[in-house]
Design a protein around this nucleic acid. Structure first.
Lengths: 267, 267
DNA sequence: CGAAGTGTTGAAAGTGTTCAAACGTGGTGG
DNA sequence: CCACCACGTTTGAACACTTTCAACACTTCG
């Protein structure tokens, strides 16, 4: 039986109707309280170009802003649990979270890691299909599902953007399935590191260094391996001179082409 | 190195503009020619309730019909190849197809099987990401990509339906990933058979019998196993009394609950 | 400084894979 | 009508691989 992180749940979401009026741009410092995203925060959002919000004009963004609440999610906290009814959609603005599915006998799979700019809400189910857990101090923009629906009807741009995003994720899911089904551990890990590097490059100008917010076990459960195999594969990549591991949670890519060639078979 | 089916390609698609006028409801018997879906075929389509077309009103369906061509795809034929530019979207009306990705060294994965009612066109890429091959004599409704785009803008219902469909497929893709990553062969195969049975039940009142249009190798490449393991797993399920195999391509589900319990761990 | 959590490394074991051969079925031609 | 061939599937045995189990190292935090 596997262990779990202590499930520190944030306080239940405030009724969006009770949130303070517009014009409160400074989030409170209280880490475990929900904060209003007042004023014209959204227009200055640093990850707006990465998010679905980029589909909206200035006017439209303000309509979104009026129903959005920025919520902190501290490390280890659970934003949602599998089986619970879905009440909100989220856009991640800071930190990192993981999507976890656990089987009755403890087998675990990490469906994905969620980084700033990612949208959580593309599901056909009324209930959450996985746990959403923060693996770093994070922050999400939260919108009630019902109001999001209304917004989608009002702004065709938004609907179109969501469909585009869903199609991209569908492509990625197929790549992922191919990797899980047919790739060897080295190829899986190489591809994973490259995807992570590409992703981080969008967020900040990280050179050839990739930070790993997740632990080895999370990587293993994401790639369909065991922690031990992931660890061994890391050392193999290091011994081959493809990467360096200055710290546990920091990878330096020494030979991008070599890595790509490894993952190549897989893409 | 693995072998491939002889790649009988259908003749290049006719320019949709050159298709006969409306009012030609009877498809020609010529198996390798493209046929117009004239008249009010769509309104009487037997799988309309399963397809995205169900989102459209009668008027709207006729607009769709005007730009749709029904195309036969004989067994073994390839509807599209990975890497080719995507020029059309398709709705399958008859038969069965497989979506295949092949790696340079011959490793193969079947991303999915496509049955009547399924929509082919939810991708964020300009190029096909997999081969689309008919594993039974099939028929698809073909719409040029550009005209589909226009249609989506005109009919918000359609756009919404596509998003809904994409979300459902996203959910299914995650289930699939979990299965590939963490389930054992018996669990994988049990789940596969149950999904197939559910799917066929929508098409025709097939009792507890499930037909397998695909070969063992296709099942293997879909579940991330080898043909041999699939075969052995079939016999295991048979010896356990969960299924019977009256023919190679026919499965009779003897103990639905037992099968569900096996797959259960996985869903 | 000690303890706990996390990651690494080693040896043994289990499982699916690989390679090889036999089986059964369907189609063809004698 | 039957023999034969081709194809897909099944079965068997040896192998290679990851997993499992266990011990050890490292870092962090109390």
């Amino acid at each position: 039986m596997k262990y779990h992180l202590p499930l520190i749940r944030p306080p239940p979401p405030l009724d969006p109707m009770t949130r303070p009026d517009t014009g409160t741009p400074s989030p409170t410092a209280e880490p475990s309280a929900t904060d209003a995203a007042g004023g014209r925060e959204c227009l200055q959002c640093s990850i707006r170009h990465l998010s679905v919000c980029s589909a909206l004009s200035c006017d439209e963004v303000q309509a979104l802003e009026a129903i959005t609440v920025s919520q902190p999610v501290p490390t280890g906290a659970t934003l949602a649990r599998a089986g619970e009814p879905r009440t909100h959609v989220y856009t991640v603005t800071d930190g990192a979270l993981r999507l976890v599915r656990t089987l009755a006998d403890g087998r675990r799979q990490v469906s994905g890691f969620v980084l700033p700019g990612d949208y959580l809400g593309l599901s056909g189910s009324d209930n959450h299909r996985y746990d959403i857990e923060a693996i770093a101090d994070s922050r999400v923009c939260r919108v009630p599902l019902s109001q999001m629906k209304e917004l989608r009807q009002r702004f065709p741009h938004l609907e179109r953007k969501l469909l585009q995003r869903a199609c991209q994720e569908l492509d990625a899911a197929q790549d992922n399935a191919l990797a899980l089904a047919r790739l060897q551990p080295m190829e899986k890990l190489a591809g994973f590191l490259l995807r992570l590097a590409d992703r981080e490059a969008l967020l900040r100008p990280s050179g050839k260094r990739v930070s790993l917010p997740m632990g080895r076990g999370d990587i293993a459960d994401h790639l369909g391996l065991t922690m031990e195999t992931v660890s061994r594969t890391f050392t193999k990549l290091r011994q081959l001179g493809l990467i360096a591991l200055p710290q546990l949670n920091l990878v330096e890519i020494l030979d991008p082409l070599g890595l790509k060639q490894l993952a190549s078979n897989g893409v």
